[in-house]
């Protein structure tokens, strides 16, 4: 049981990293990773919302299946996530102002982040149990954060020195090529967990 959970967690953090091998949440990955501080905040917010979204959507899916309307998954999940993010934001503002200060500004961005919806749909389609899917969502969030923080480090250190980069690659091109190299290095984990 525990071993199984560890395999799921490590598998999604390293081998099937959400950003670098499954291409989920690329917009925010490339958009927010220009600063280390904001990537830590965004990563934290994604971990937080992903786990909460998974905690809620898994039981919701059981209800949908019970009434044999599983095909409404997409519509229901996106609405549940959107409402949840709003609710979490209001709750945090009232009761957890410190957490709100750290993560709050990134929360509204998350509703339309495909990583959240992707994690919840994936966990259902893999047929995970409740505990497994929560661990999966947590791992997916952590993987997103790891990729983003590493990439922010690279961008802050190396890509700010624009003189050495050929003109057509300046800006967007070099960011994508560096993301490619990072994805390549993450492929070294392939086959670690079967």
């Amino acid at each position: 049981m525990i071993v199984n959970l560890i395999v799921i967690f490590m598998g999604i953090v390293l081998v099937n990293n959400f950003v670098l091998s499954q291409f989920l949440g690329i917009c925010s990955f490339l958009g927010v990773s220009n600063k280390m501080s904001s990537s830590v905040g965004m990563g934290g917010a994604v971990v937080f919302v992903m786990v909460i979204a998974e905690l809620v959507t898994w039981p919701v899916m059981q209800i949908l299946n019970k009434f044999e309307i599983g095909y409404l998954q997409t519509v229901v999940f996106i609405l549940v996530i959107a409402a949840l993010v709003q609710f979490v934001e209001m709750f945090m503002k009232k009761y957890l102002p410190a957490l709100q200060k750290a993560l709050g500004i990134f929360l509204p961005l998350i509703t339309t982040n495909c990583a959240i919806l992707g994690a919840t749909i994936n966990a259902i389609s893999y047929g995970y149990s409740y505990v497994e899917s929560v661990v999966y969502a947590f791992g997916a969030g952590v993987g997103y954060m790891v990729a983003m923080v590493l990439f922010a480090g690279i961008r802050e250190e190396k890509l700010n020195n624009m003189d050495a980069i050929p003109t057509p690659f300046k800006g967007v091109g070099i960011i994508l090529v560096s993301a490619s190299i990072m994805a390549l290095s993450f492929m070294g984990f392939t086959g670690m967990f079967q």
Binding site: P166, P168, V172, G173, L176, V177, S180, I181, A183
Partner: peptide
């Protein structure tokens, strides 16, 4: 065919486009 190739081709595609239209 692998994920890193996706990032790479996208990056090169953008760079080619930039070079062809002078940015």
């Amino acid at each position: 065919n692998l994920p890193p190739g996706g990032f790479f081709v996208f990056g090169v595609l953008i760079a080619v486009m930039q070079a062809a239209t002078k940015g």
